[in-house]
């Protein structure tokens, strides 16, 4: 079940208003709705192999947590649910490390990898997700092939009843998410579905009535974009105004390759205008005159 969301970007809207391009393209993020996590029948606390394999395939995880009474009327226990889900991810990672260390016993070399895994195992045994350990980039690179679940960026979404949509995230949930190195937000999926049904013109008034400044959808998309550590660079002209997603820290050379591989191969330099300068001065020519290009 795959969904693609356009990332709202007021800068793209503003540039499109100036250039009136034939086409406007927003950055996009893909979302996959995985089947519900199920415990392996033989060990209640461990996710089954199929679920683990699916989770490993994602670049980041969004964990939806129940913030409303269940069908039997039992009150929600979001902090406990978060904790037990985190424990499952940690156990799945620990199993991978133990298996790998077992194999490394029989192989020579791999000293750095062995040392790192031996250092991570006790943290996992203590229930600490890998993402909270502040691993250095070179350590992360060493671990990249393992696709550790507790190292994946995580956004916690507390799904609350409509009446609680404007209530701040409960502190116990916020604290639990912080402890796991995760971002967290509350939203009411039911309310969002209602908002989506409304005419765009009616949405703002509806949100204001509920005491909300914007839809949770916009907050969710921004949070997901940040979770993936993505930023956009913008290109504009008569043909197209477009936001291009790149990882934070991507070089101009690699970013150019997003537009076309030829541009990456033949790259000499990039002439860049900061968005704020462009908006302040109003045109490319004025930015050039002012030495802002």
């Amino acid at each position: 079940n795959l969904g693609v969301i356009k990332v709202p970007d007021a800068r793209v809207d503003a540039l499109a208003a100036i250039y009136q391009p034939r086409k406007t393209t927003y950055a996009e993020v893909s979302f996959v709705d995985f089947p519900p996590a199920r415990s392996a029948p033989e060990r209640r606390t461990v996710l089954d192999a199929a679920t683990v394999a699916q989770l490993r395939d994602a670049d980041a995880l969004v964990e939806v947590v129940r913030g409303f009474p269940d069908v039997a009327g039992a009150p929600p226990t979001p902090a406990a649910d978060l904790e037990s889900f985190a424990a499952e991810l940690v156990l799945a990672d620990l199993a991978v490390i133990e298996k790998r260390l077992e194999r490394l016993k029989k192989e020579k070399g791999h000293e750095r990898e062995r040392a790192l895994l031996e250092r991570l195992a006790p943290s996992l045994e203590a229930g600490t997700p890998l993402r909270t350990l502040g691993l250095a980039p070179e350590e992360r690179a060493l671990l990249a092939g393992f696709a550790f679940l507790s190292l994946r960026p995580l956004l916690v979404v507390l799904n609350v009843p409509e009446a609680a949509a404007a209530v701040p995230l409960p502190e116990e949930v916020a604290a639990r998410a912080r402890a796991e190195g995760a971002e967290a937000m509350a939203l009411s999926a039911r309310l969002e579905a209602e908002i989506a049904e409304l005419e765009p013109a009616d949405r703002d008034a509806f949100l204001a009535d509920l005491g909300l400044a914007e839809s949770a959808r916009a907050r969710f998309i921004r949070a997901s974009y940040a979770l993936l550590d993505l930023i956009s660079f913008l290109t504009t002209g008569e043909d197209e105004c477009r936001a291009w997603p790149i990882r934070r820290g991507t070089t101009a050379l690699k970013a150019a390759g997003k537009v076309h591989s030829d541009i990456e191969r033949g790259f000499i330099r990039a002439e860049v205008i900061a968005y704020d300068e462009f908006m302040r001065l109003g045109s490319e020519a004025k930015c050039r005159e002012a030495g802002k290009l």
């Binding site: 996959v32 989770l55 939806v64 129940r66 269940d70 889900f85 799904n159 039911r190 579905a193 949770a216």
Partner: peptide
């Protein structure tokens, strides 16, 4: 880039998915 939605059964994961991607 792909974001995976997960969670325990009964948390309303698919409702969230549909509301946000629909």
């Amino acid at each position: 880039m792909k974001v995976g939605l997960t969670g325990f059964p009964g948390a309303g994961k698919t409702t969230v998915f549909n509301a946000l991607t629909g």
